[in-house]
């Protein structure tokens, strides 16, 4: 328990566990690692995760952990708003939902009722579902995002999900996997033999924007150090500048950013770079605005395209073309992929 001097509970002071989840090895591991936490037994994770009128902002400061068994659906088709330059059928799985970080622009705040972190402990069932899908259609290539609704690598010290997935699917013939992170936790995977069909993707932004919009995340320099280590160890590493945030003075900020990338990253060894504008379903955008108290990021000049809120196309093209011409100096153009609006 937290001391009485602390007014809010520390993260994971409480662990809500479905009774059915308790027998799984991952649940046992988490219970051991969080042995000081109060364990509250629950019937179904939705009774806690989907409670109405939860306060996202307060929960972010004192998140709880929910352990559950996924009984319904294991694999989802990826959204049209995701970039997939390698082709293949694009899916995502969500062995974890919600993230340790609290970035201003994160769509999870609009998607979920809660900031509490949900871990599905029946990992073997996820494996069977993915292996079954890939086995049934061997003529196809699948691209599967593993951390679409979370930052699994940031959580790896508590729940080694990245390790489990890499060990299970590391040499799978017709499936490629992506693990996306903002963390500097590559050390947790350092002893694993690099798997060719796994992409480790780091989300990056210029440092001034990290400070403004990604509170409590590692600095750009720290992320670049981790990226360099992963490349050096032989992993396929992708950089995601996605969402690319436009805020004045964007030109100066991004020029300095690209200079830092060039200093730190051996671009010829980088797998590729993804660039995408801020974009979010309108319903999430409005919910997020209410929950975050209308932060500065919502004051940019956005347009509505279908049900998606994004940048005005002219503004985006001006910024993107400028950044692209700088970027081409440090990495071959064929390795730069962009989400078009």
């Amino acid at each position: 328990m937290a001391s009485s001097e602390n007014w809010k509970f520390k993260p994971f002071s409480h662990l809500y566990a479905e009774t059915e989840a308790l027998g799984y090895p991952l649940a046992e591991q988490l219970l051991r690692r969080l042995s000081g936490s109060e364990v509250i037994r629950i019937r179904h994770y939705k009774d806690v995760f989907n409670r109405p009128r939860q306060n996202f902002r307060l929960q972010k400061q004192s998140p709880k952990l929910i352990l559950a068994v996924q009984r319904e659906r294991f694999i989802y088709p990826a959204s049209d708003n995701c970039l997939n330059p390698d082709g293949g059928d694009f899916y995502y799985v969500s062995p974890m939902r919600n993230c340790l970080y609290h970035c201003d622009y994160c769509f999870l705040q609009g998607m979920h009722q809660t900031a509490n972190i949900l871990v599905f402990v029946n990992t073997e069932d996820y494996f069977s579902a993915v292996a079954g899908m890939c086995d049934r259609q061997r003529e196809k290539t699948f691209f599967i995002s593993l951390s679409y609704e979370s930052d699994m690598m940031a959580f790896e010290n508590l729940a080694p999900l990245c390790r489990l997935w890499i060990e299970r699917f590391g040499a799978w013939p017709n499936a490629r996997f992506e693990i996306r992170t903002k963390s500097t936790n590559f050390r947790a995977l350092q002893d694993i033999k690099p798997a060719d069909n796994f992409l480790l993707t780091w989300s990056v932004l210029p440092q001034p924007l990290i400070e403004r919009f990604e509170p409590n995340t590692p600095t750009l320099r720290q992320r670049l150090d981790d990226i360099a280590q992963a490349i050096h160890a032989g992993w396929n590493v992708r950089l995601a500048i996605d969402p690319l945030i436009i805020t004045d003075p964007w030109q100066m900020v991004y020029e300095e950013f690209i200079r830092q990338l060039n200093d730190k990253i051996f671009s010829e060894k980088l797998y590729d770079i993804h660039i995408g504008p801020f974009r979010m379903p309108e319903i999430y955008f409005n919910r997020l605005k209410n929950r975050r108290g209308n932060p500065q990021i919502f004051h940019a000049s956005y347009i509505k395209k279908g049900n998606i809120i994004t940048y005005d196309r002219d503004l985006w093209l001006t910024v993107y073309n400028t950044i692209l011409s700088e970027m081409k100096r440090i990495i071959p153009e064929k390795k730069i992929h962009t989400f078009l609006i």
Binding site: F9, H14, Y16, I40, R41, L58, S62
Partner: peptide, 27 residues
């Protein structure tokens, strides 16, 4: 109390525990 169960309906309710304290907790 960290969980309230209605014996008649089987429904559970969970207050959100944000404030740190030194009480013991129970369902």
């Amino acid at each position: 109390i960290n969980k309230i169960t209605d014996a008649a309906t089987g429904k559970d309710y969970y207050p959100d525990l944000i404030t740190a304290h030194s009480f013991k907790e129970k369902p």
